[in-house]
Nucleic acid binder design. Structure first.
Lengths: 67, 67
DNA sequence: CTTGAATAACAATTCAAT
DNA sequence: ATTGAATTGTTATTCAAG
């Protein structure tokens, strides 16, 4: 699986779920058959420019910056 | 100095500077005469819904979510 | 150039106090 | 309700490797 494919998967996952941590993201990707470590997700998130938006209750979630 | 005032200061600071960490933010506020700890800034950032936007070079910066 | 394991750096929470 | 010190949790980086 290529990095570009993984990036696409990540975008799909954060659109469909409230992802509160990179560890959660890792689990969701695993369910879709993609195994990566947190270090890689940290890099992917930077490359995709994803931001973690703080929620009222403290539980932030990853999101695309609406530009 | 009230929390609302500090919040206003924080917004001013992040508009005028590339703030890459809460520790940096703390220093900039200190220059403006406001002393707080990282714990308080973490809470303020949540309350203000500030996000840390990843930059290309790795050095993220705090920003208002563009709605 | 891409990744994982280990570590460092950074941010959020707890707990006590005010 | 608000805060700081200490702690815990999370994310970014380093370092070695493929």
């Amino acid at each position: 699986m290529s990095k570009r494919q993984r990036h696409a998967q990540i975008l799909a996952v954060i659109r469909e779920n409230r992802v509160a941590s990179q560890e959660t993201l890792r689990e969701l990707l695993h369910q879709r058959g993609t195994e990566v470590t947190q270090a890689t997700l940290s890099r992917d998130i930077r490359e995709l420019r994803l931001v973690k938006v703080p929620d009222a209750d403290g539980t932030g979630h990853y999101s695309l910056p609406e530009e």
